[in-house]
């Protein structure tokens, strides 16, 4: 680990496999990362890259079968939570790790009031009385910017708009002052002006509460505006990891570079044609023995086809899993 404080969350060599009738799908392949206190780690990747599955595996939210976490360690404040029992895991989820899901409509229960749902973790994990929980729930709704918070507690989810529902979800995730907040595409289902409201809220909450956040998204624009550090995933692996400015100014992995080039910009010069990454991401029916990006990579050479590259440091807090990029750096260092 480069600098500073002990990580709140340290994930080592996590491997998750889905056992299906067609065979094993290797969704997460030896993923390692850490999260420092107060840090916001952005996780980017396309659908199927394993970003959600990674986060769900580490807090035991995947149905098993078919999912099976086959290897790895997940240290929360130094203690392994991957191999603890279900009851203990339940006391960690919601209390020490909060979760925000993509679609606030399907993750809120339509038959309970919003107040009821925010109070549930408070009473369960913190042992508050009903009156205390109610007061705290109103406080939380106020914190996430819902006007007239006390009255809105008795409202049902359908009475809230999409953006307001996402605020409720955030309030629920924050209820027990978690050490770590995992947000899985929390703004993807929202319109841009509402997304801007939520991003502003999260920036503000970080200043006030200072919890560590993992933010999963496919939108590099959102990442650029909110993350401290970014992890790029492809085919169930971390292919590159760097501080946010470093990643956007000096991307090393050919996938990261291509991804940054294919998205059109709002400002700056407008290209005549969009850059394209040919082909499609693979579905891994076996543990990858070669670089999974090699078939789409412009720089692939012999070694890429029979050896899966390991992550190697290429700068301060910057590492990349690529034979070509690592070679490029070695050249720079020796020159």
């Amino acid at each position: 680990m480069p600098d500073g404080a002990e990580p709140v969350l340290d994930v080592r060599g996590l491997k998750t496999v889905f056992r299906t009738r067609e065979g094993d799908v290797h969704a997460v392949n030896s993923v390692s990362f850490h999260l420092r206190p107060g840090e916001l780690l952005g996780v980017v990747g396309e659908s199927g890259s394993g970003k959600s599955v990674t986060m769900m595996s580490l807090i035991g939210l995947l149905p098993s079968p078919p999912a099976q976490v086959q290897a790895g360690q997940v240290l929360l404040d130094g203690k392994d939570i991957l191999h603890v029992g279900n009851t203990q895991l339940q006391s960690i989820r919601g209390a020490r790790i909060g979760f925000i899901f993509q679609d606030p409509m399907t993750s809120l229960n339509p038959v309970f009031t919003v107040g009821n749902q925010i109070m549930e973790p408070l009473r369960r994990h913190m042992g508050l009385t009903k009156a205390q929980a109610q007061a705290r729930a109103a406080e939380l709704l106020d914190l996430v910017g819902i006007p007239d918070a006390k009255k809105r507690l008795s409202g049902y989810p359908h009475q809230f708009s999409g953006g307001m529902r996402q605020r409720v979800m955030i309030a629920m995730a924050l209820a027990c002052d978690p050490r770590v907040l995992i947000a899985d595409e929390p703004t993807t289902a929202l319109d841009v002006t509402i997304q801007a409201q939520i991003l502003e809220l999260v920036r503000d909450l970080r200043r006030k509460l200072g919890m560590a956040i993992i933010w999963i998204t496919h939108d590099l624009g959102v990442i650029a505006g909110i993350a401290d550090r970014v992890m790029v995933m492809y085919a169930g692996q971390v292919v590159e990891q760097a501080p946010v400015k470093e990643l956007f100014t000096r991307p090393r992995h050919p996938y990261t570079r291509a991804l940054l080039k294919t998205i059109p910009r709002l400002g700056g010069p407008r290209g005549d044609r969009l850059q394209v990454i040919e082909g499609q991401p693979p579905i891994l029916m076996a543990a990858p023995a070669a670089c999974p990006f090699a078939p789409r990579c412009a720089h692939a050479f012999g070694r890429c086809l029979h050896e899966n590259p390991q992550r190697r440091p290429v700068g301060l807090g910057h590492d990349v899993a690529c034979h070509w990029a690592a070679g490029e750096t070695a050249g720079e260092i020796h020159a």
Binding site: A196, G221, A224, G225, F248
Partner: peptide, 10 residues
């Protein structure tokens, strides 16, 4: 409101 993939600009 559209986020731009450029941390310095953002």
């Amino acid at each position: 409101a559209v986020p731009e993939p450029d941390p310095t600009l953002e």
